[in-house]
Amino acid sequence: MRLSYSYALEAKALSVFYGDNKAVDEVSYGFKRNKVTAIIGPSGCVKSTLMRAMNRMHDFVPEVKIEGSLWYESEDIYDQRANPVLVRKKIGMVFQKPNPFPKSIAKNIVWGPKINRMSKNYKELIESSLKRAALWDEVKHRLEESALSLSGGQQQRLCIARSIAMDPDIILMDEPCSALDPKSTASIEELILTLREKYTILIVTHNMQQARRISDEVLFMYEGRLVESGDTEQMFENPRIGQTHDYIRGKFG
């Protein structure tokens, strides 16, 4: 089933409305498996809005309405029969500001698997998740300490480890480095490049250099519409559309 479908996630004319205001305007795009796809564009909430539509995080905001379809494993996750909880198990999310639970490091990792009755061997799960998030060596002796005692960059890697522990297919990252210092940012970027081997990663960023450093493909959004998309190198070297060119060269944004 998995291999028969070519994209990890495919949006078809996906629109997001805030009340009557169309924030995301008919975006269609197929996100490729095991690639890092960056969503860039000038400030405004549109990029995050699009990303939050990818795992139905808008469900909790009554005034948001979604049109179009979003295909995951040959199923439209906005179909009435689709189960948003199952969707979020397979499509994890890392937020702008690190948001660990006010619990121990270990409990943060096992929280998701526990409530979903997934794994039995939590000890191994904690170790493997933290290792994959490149945090194990820093915290292995203090797993019972509060997650809030970690630095911002460590907290964000813990949040990544937390979503990895759910064994997702796709990890959504909503400006994961915007609250971090350059050093922590570098470690997260390095991590993203290694995670690509196992997961499909979508990342929203306002930092064009970051998009260039870590992504395989880029989507350029402007005023709710997908202006241009394609291979990262090609997009940065010679974009086809003038608007993209101007944004990438820093003429606006």
Binding site: K97, N99, G112
Partner: peptide
């Protein structure tokens, strides 16, 4: 804070959880 509610929803939690 909203952020930790969102974190738990993103981990596949149900509302009651």
């Amino acid at each position: 804070p909203l952020s930790i509610r969102e974190a738990s929803f993103a981990l596949g939690a149900q509302k009651w959880q």
